[in-house]
Design a protein around this nucleic acid. Structure first.
Lengths: 200, 200
DNA sequence: GCAAAAGTGTTGCTAGTACACCCATGA
DNA sequence: TCATGGGTGTACTAGCAACACTTTTGC
């Protein structure tokens, strides 16, 4: 039997880095089912907007201009116990400074029971981001100017692996995507780092 | 304004290789809009089935057990001129021998005007497949036993690039995914090739 | 002067690339 | 014997991995 009409949700998995650990932005559900559990801050598809448009607008309102991309659509018929809803999953990367409500972020490691299949969605998003971190993503995620070591930390958290500091620097500089701003860190109680930015 | 309900299509981009060129399986549309144009052989989401289930079942009916995966969901609000339909796009790889109606395959290079946004969907699928060809995909796509050079051709067509024959052999054998069947090609009017199979 | 993080080079290994000729078979 | 595609090795290059000490600053 074909479904003539189905509800379509758009669910952003909003990642951020806090204290060098990967966190995700979640809301507490205020109604049944799953009342009281954490959930992704999703919504329904909007008239005259692509899913992309909707996510872009919502992220812009809440966090400003951030990186995001579609990664998978979840269609398990039982994913919502009430009726059929499919969910188009997006990944977003939001710098911690752009998140006003700091209580809404949760360490990805520690997540337990979430509403619906949202844990599964986050896991899949986690896998996805581990694979390919695009320069475009980093351009929006990193501050305007940053030390190389900060960039290394970001790679390490997102990919969940360690890099050798010398090798990382050599590689990232050889990519020719960074530019030395000739500025230095200030007022740090250790040797100040050179600040870099993404070129063009 | 939120959409409460939307139509959800599942559209498989069924690739095959014919005469060493990439082809895609398309049907001629029998009704308006776009009557007479070629379209992907899609359908609507089915009750109690995930999109994956539906595609799997349909491919199984028509072509047998073939490789497929979800790759992108298309949600442009104007993609169907009549009403809102989103489409969950899948890629499938079907060996030419498993396609009964040979008239339904069309060289990807030569596609012109298709129904809806199906050309865009095929282009995106083309990009996707160019990137990562998994061993799992090849296991189902290749015959049980095949010469190395046939495998090279498949890589070349899917990735749209050429390999050096010696380097390709060295690399593919070093991956340890193939096994020498100790059998040879028969009745070919040139030096018969060793036949390989995927191991395990 | 101590704590903290920044910064720096060399060597070995591995994987990738470029390249040209002989071999086995059927017709 | 010819046409056809199968099969093979070496040398160079580039990228990746391992590894430990000195530098600059604030306190």
């Amino acid at each position: 039997m074909k479904y003539d009409q189905v509800k379509v949700g758009v669910d952003p998995v909003i990642f951020t880095i806090f204290r060098n650990r990967l966190h995700v932005y979640l809301n507490k559900r205020e109604k049944d089912p799953f009342i009281g559990l954490l959930e992704l801050p999703g919504g329904l598809l909007v008239e005259n907007e692509s899913a992309n448009d909707t996510i872009k607008r919502k992220l812009l309102e809440q966090f400003g201009d951030v990186y995001f991309k579609q990664f998978h659509t979840f269609t398990n018929p039982k994913r919502d116990p009430r009726f059929r809803v499919i969910s188009i999953g997006f990944i977003a990367l939001v710098p911690m400074e752009q998140i006003k409500n700091k209580d809404d972020i949760h360490e990805v490691q520690n997540l337990s029971r979430l509403a619906f299949d949202h844990l599964e969605i986050i896991k899949k998003a986690r896998e996805e981001i581990k694979q390919n971190i695009s320069t475009n993503a980093l351009k929006k995620f990193m501050p305007d100017k940053f030390p190389l070591n900060k960039l290394q930390e970001v790679y390490e958290v997102l990919e969940n692996k360690k890099y050798d500091n010398r090798n990382f620097r050599k590689k990232i500089l050889s990519l020719d995507i960074l530019e030395d701003t000739k500025e230095m860190e200030k007022k740090v109680s250790h040797r100040p780092a050179k600040l870099f930015k993404f070129n063009n």
